[in-house]
Simulated scan of single mutants.
Amino acid sequence: MSRYDVGTTLEIEVGAVAHGGHCVSRVDGRVVFVRHALPGERVVAEITEDKGGSYCRADAVRVLRAAPGRVEPPCPLAVPGACGGCDWQHAAPELQRELKARVVAEQLSRLAGIERETEVEELPGGMLGWRTRMRLVAGRDGRAGLRGHRGHDVIALPDCPIAVPGILEPVVSRRWRPGSEVEVTSDGDGRPHVREQTSARGRRQTRQLRGGRAVEHAAGRDWKLDAHGFWQVHPAAADTLAEVVGRWARVPEGGRAWDLYAGVGLFASVLAGQAGPRGEVVAVESNRGAVADGEANLADLPQVSWRAGRVEHVVRDLGEGGAPDVVVLDPPRAGAGRAVVESIVEVAPARVVYVACDPAALARDLATFAGHGYSLADLRAFDAFPMTHHVECVALVERG
Rank of each mutant, 00 (worst) to 15 (best):
V345I: 07
G279T: 11
R102G: 13
E117R: 15
G139K: 09
V24Q: 07
G255H: 05
A144Q: 12
G294V: 03
S286P: 03
E115N: 06
A249V: 05
A105T: 06
Q89A: 01
G7F: 11
G246H: 10
D141M: 04
D239A: 12
S305A: 01
R110M: 01
I12A: 11
F267R: 06
D28W: 00
A360N: 05
V251F: 02
G276T: 09
P302A: 05
L99R: 07
A237N: 00
A377V: 01
L298D: 09
P359D: 08
V282W: 01
A360L: 10
R174W: 06
G321S: 05
G294R: 10
R102F: 14
A237Y: 00
H90F: 03
G113C: 04
V328F: 04
T185M: 12
H90D: 08
G40T: 07
V32R: 02
S2F: 11
T9A: 13
R316E: 15
P158D: 13
L10V: 14
L301C: 11
P331N: 04
L123K: 12
T388P: 06
L266K: 06
L168D: 08
S2W: 11
L209H: 14
G400F: 09
E312D: 15
W130N: 13
A200W: 08
Q96K: 05
C75N: 03
P192Y: 13
P359K: 09
E398M: 12
Q303R: 06
F369T: 09
E181H: 14
N287V: 13
R288N: 10
D226R: 04
V244N: 00
E346N: 11
G15S: 04
T185E: 11
A395Y: 08
P161C: 09
G255E: 00
G20K: 03
L318W: 13
H149D: 08
W223E: 15
V184D: 03
G335S: 02
P386Y: 05
R42A: 01
L99W: 07
D293P: 08
V251A: 02
V44P: 07
V154Y: 14
A381Q: 06
E398T: 15
T48G: 06
V345K: 03
G212Y: 07
R399S: 10
V326M: 10
P178Q: 00
D293G: 12
A112H: 03
W231E: 02
R110E: 08
R213W: 08
G373I: 07
A257I: 09
V182P: 05
V233C: 01
G15E: 11
T388D: 05
A200Y: 07
A45G: 02
P277A: 15
S25W: 06
T132G: 14
V63G: 11
A242R: 02
H390R: 09
H22N: 08
E312A: 15
L379W: 02
E253T: 05
A290S: 14
R333F: 11
R42L: 05
E285S: 01
G85A: 08
F267H: 14
A101D: 14
S343Y: 07
Q274L: 02
G142W: 12
G263N: 06
L128D: 10
F385A: 00
V251L: 03
G254Q: 05
Q205G: 04
E312F: 04
P74H: 03
I167D: 02
L396I: 03
Q197D: 04
A384W: 11
R57L: 09
R307V: 13
V27G: 00
L10G: 13
A323G: 01
H22E: 13
G321R: 14
V182F: 09
P170F: 09
